[in-house]
C-alpha cells in the first residue's frame, strides 16, 4: 500500500529517497503501466518517487554526435520532434504507435524500456540505434549498452527500487545511414504490437554496411536477427538479398503464442515480410539522406 508519494528535485535526492526505503520504494515515470500493475497487485510499493520535478529530465538534447532522451520525455515529445524525425524516424514511428494520444502524452520512452517488455514499441526502435542507458544508483553513474538492459522476458535489469535510468542516448544519423520501424497490429490505436521489427542500415554504393536488424517478441528484449545481419553485410541491395534476410530471420526467431497478440504460426509467417519492409524503409531513409 502506497504510504507516500514524493517529488525529488535532483537525481541525487531521488536515489537517496529510494535508498531510504530499502527496496520498498519505486520510481514512477509516466505511470501508465505502473498504475495498472499496482492496481492488479503485480507490483507493490510503500513509496513512489516521481521524477517529474527533476530539472532536465523532460528534454530531448542534441549533442555533437549523439542525442539523449531524458527520463521524463514522453512519447508525444518524440512524435513532435523534428530532430528525431531526421535522426531516428523509426523511433518516431514507433512512438506514434503507442496506445493513444492520451497515453503518449504521459507515458515516457525510458519507462517503456525499463518496463522490460521485449516488444515495447520504443524499445524495439531504440534497440537498432546503438543506444545506451545512463543508470544512477548509490554506487554512482554507469552507462549500459541497450541490449544489457534485459534480464528475461518482461524482466528488466534495472531495479526500480534503487536505480534510475536518467537518459537514453544514441548516435546521430551519419551519411548513408537510415533507420525504420515496422509492426503488425490488430487495430490502429490502443493496441500492442503483435510483432515488431526495427532496422538500421548504412548504405554505401548500393551495398549494405552495418546492418542492425531487431525483432520482437522473440526473447528477453528485442533480439538481433544475427544471421540475417551477417548475411547482408557487404551485400548488394537487391530484392533477392532482402528476401533472404527475411528467411534467415525467420529461421532464427522463436515466437510464442499469445491468445491476445497472435499465434506463433502467424508471427513466424509474417516475420519475413516485416523484415523486408523494415529493411526497405531503412534503405529509403538512408537514401533520403
Amino acid at each position: 500500500m502506497v504510504q507516500d508519494y514524493v517529488f525529488p528535485g535532483t537525481v541525487e535526492q531521488a536515489v537517496a529517497m529510494l535508498a531510504e526505503s530499502k527496496g520498498r520504494a519505486r520510481v514512477i515515470a509516466g505511470g501508465t503501466d505502473l498504475v495498472l500493475d499496482m492496481r492488479d497487485g503485480k507490483i507493490t510499493a510503500d513509496k513512489l518517487v516521481d521524477l517529474r520535478a527533476i530539472d532536465g529530465m523532460q528534454r530531448i538534447v542534441e549533442h555533437d554526435d549523439s542525442i539523449s532522451i531524458g527520463a521524463s520525455v514522453t512519447h508525444s515529445q518524440i512524435v513532435r520532434s523534428t530532430l528525431l524525425r531526421h535522426h531516428a524516424p523509426g523511433l518516431v514511428d514507433a512512438c506514434r504507435k503507442v496506445g493513444s494520444l492520451q497515453i503518449r502524452n504521459v507515458a515516457t520512452v525510458v519507462g517503456n524500456v525499463v518496463n522490460g517488455n521485449p516488444a515495447a514499441d520504443a524499445a524495439v526502435a531504440l534497440a537498432c540505434l546503438d543506444a545506451t542507458a545512463t543508470v544512477v544508483d548509490e554506487q554512482g553513474t554507469r552507462t549500459i549498452p541497450f541490449n544489457e538492459l534485459y534480464a528475461g522476458i518482461c524482466i528488466s535489469c534495472i531495479n526500480s527500487s534503487c536505480q534510475i535510468v536518467t537518459q537514453i542516448s544514441f548516435p546521430k544519423k551519419k551519411a548513408g545511414e537510415g533507420s525504420s520501424y515496422i509492426r503488425m497490429e490488430q487495430r490502429k490505436a490502443l493496441s500492442l504490437p503483435m510483432l515488431n521489427v526495427s532496422s538500421k542500415v548504412r548504405v554505401i554504393n548500393s551495398q549494405f554496411q552495418d546492418v542492425q536488424l531487431l525483432m520482437a517478441p522473440v526473447g528477453a528484449g528485442p533480439q538481433h536477427a544475427v544471421t540475417a545481419e551477417d548475411f547482408l553485410m557487404g551485400k548488394d541491395i537487391t530484392d533477392e538479398n532482402i528476401r533472404q534476410a527475411g528467411v534467415l530471420a525467420r529461421e532464427q526467431a522463436t515466437f510464442r503464442s499469445s491468445a491476445v497478440r497472435g499465434s506463433k504460426e502467424y508471427r513466424i509467417g509474417v516475420l519475413p515480410v516485416c523484415v523486408e519492409r523494415a529493411l526497405r524503409a531503412a534503405i529509403a531513409d538512408a537514401q533520403e539522406g
Partner: peptide
C-alpha cells in the same frame, strides 16, 4: 479478451 486493451473495438483511426 476481457478488457478494453485486448478486446479490439474499432477506434476512430480504424
Amino acid at each position: 479478451h476481457s478488457n478494453m486493451h485486448s478486446y479490439m473495438l474499432p477506434t476512430a483511426e480504424d
